[in-house]
Amino acid sequence: MAAKPSGAGKAPAWTTPADVRTASLRAWNSGELLREAALPTGLHPRRRALKHPSATQLRTDYALAAAWAASWVPAPQGCSLDHVSVGASTIGANTLPAAAVFASASDEILFLGLGRESAKFTELSRRVTELDAGLTAWAMLRPLELLKYGEDALTAARVALWFAANPAPGIYLRQLSLPGVHTKFVENHRRLIDGILAVLAPERPLVGKNYARRHGFHAAPDRVRVRYLDSAQAPVPGMDDVEMTAAAFAAHPLDVDRIITTENLINFLALPPAPRTLAVFGGGYGFEGIRDAAWLKDVEVLYWGDIDTHGFHILDQLRSHHPHVHSILMDEETLLAHRDFWGREALPSHAVLTHLDASENTLYEALKASTHQPQLRLEQELLRWDWVLARLP
């Protein structure tokens, strides 16, 4: 383009090499470019159109247009340029870049400067396919995962292959004997292993909270920790803090009139002596230990949790198994009396709860609606102990 006078003004939004790079990076980040490089489907040659100066803009902002055209010279590595003639009938023909063309996915990867990563993926996909041909589908589905985890992805693939071949191993996960694989590896790569297994055995459901049980392994039984707040009822003098399996707790009714279950360990340990009363440590959503204890229907059951949406969600779930459960220290009076200790709940629950009483539901809805403060949370261990003692039943 020959130099001509230019008009002043802000540079128009013409497509820059950086803009094309952004578009190509989206294709890389979706895994598309790695898939296309390995198994082309016809997406390439790919033509990425460029927004270029119009004839009017050439006349009014010629210097800017010339600078823009120069930014495309030479063509970036990995692509060629298609050109178009603009302004022939007004200011004279000017040849401008109209599209960046990538002959292949490999060329587009070269344009991004990611050739080394692409070569690494090619090697990893070859090795994972050598483990089992069925793993090719996973490598193509999750190419960036394979690239990210590298050698760990190959190890995870070996674990997934073993899981697929042994759907009901009937051993503890810790007993898994694969060379170079330890229990911590499985624990730290559960999502990766399950993702691979979902491709290897799509008909196999992967459900359940307990990872070991989900894959047919034995799992440590749920346990219940209790404190006899009436020392006279302890099974052995001085043995007032006892832990047992949930099955034992459910099968053997304890001779008490009242149970107080709390999520916080220190509160569990600090509860004062009380006649014929048992304290149970719940540990958040981990109340599975008392869920199946049918004998609780003949005992007063009190639940003390955090004043936040999840505290009421836990209460709701517990009450779905034991409808007679009463909440304590989870009321608006307690909340407002401890304003100095208010905190924030990271991820509030918005579940519809159907087992709360009217006052509990009112407070739960107020928490969801941020009536007092957004994402309000009052942790039970922050309550003043004199307040607690004055209100314990």
Rank of each mutant, 00 (worst) to 15 (best):
S89Y: 00
W387H: 15
Q175L: 02
R225L: 11
E187P: 02
P179R: 04
L389A: 13
L192V: 03
H326V: 14
F312T: 01
S71V: 01
A369H: 05
P273R: 08
P179G: 03
R59F: 08
V352F: 04
A366S: 04
G78P: 03
V207H: 07
D257C: 11
V226D: 06
I328P: 08
R127V: 00
P237F: 00
A390M: 03
L96W: 06
V73L: 12
R127H: 01
L265F: 15
G78R: 08
I314D: 08
T362R: 15
R59E: 09
E263T: 14
W304T: 01
L278S: 01
L278W: 00
L318T: 02
T22G: 09
L39T: 14
N264K: 11
R48K: 06
G31F: 00
A23G: 13
A160Y: 01
G343L: 09
E263S: 15
G305E: 12
D241A: 14
D357R: 12
V73P: 02
S118M: 10
T56A: 14
S320M: 10
M239A: 15
L114C: 12
L144G: 06
A75N: 04
T95K: 13
G78C: 07
L39Q: 11
P237R: 02
A65W: 03
A219N: 04
V224D: 03
G289H: 00
C79F: 05
Q175K: 11
A247Q: 15
G283N: 12
D255W: 01
G283L: 09
V299Q: 07
R225I: 07
R213S: 10
E243P: 09
P237H: 01
W28H: 14
P374Y: 02
A164C: 13
A55F: 06
V299Y: 03
V101C: 14
T309E: 09
D308C: 14
L315W: 03
V325E: 13
D292V: 05
Y303Q: 11
S71E: 12
E332H: 02
H83M: 04
F102E: 10
P202R: 01
S30I: 10
D306R: 12
P53Q: 07
R190L: 02
R223W: 08
S24R: 04
A337N: 07
A164V: 11
N361I: 01
P53H: 06
A69Q: 14
L131E: 12
R225G: 06
W342N: 08
V20G: 07
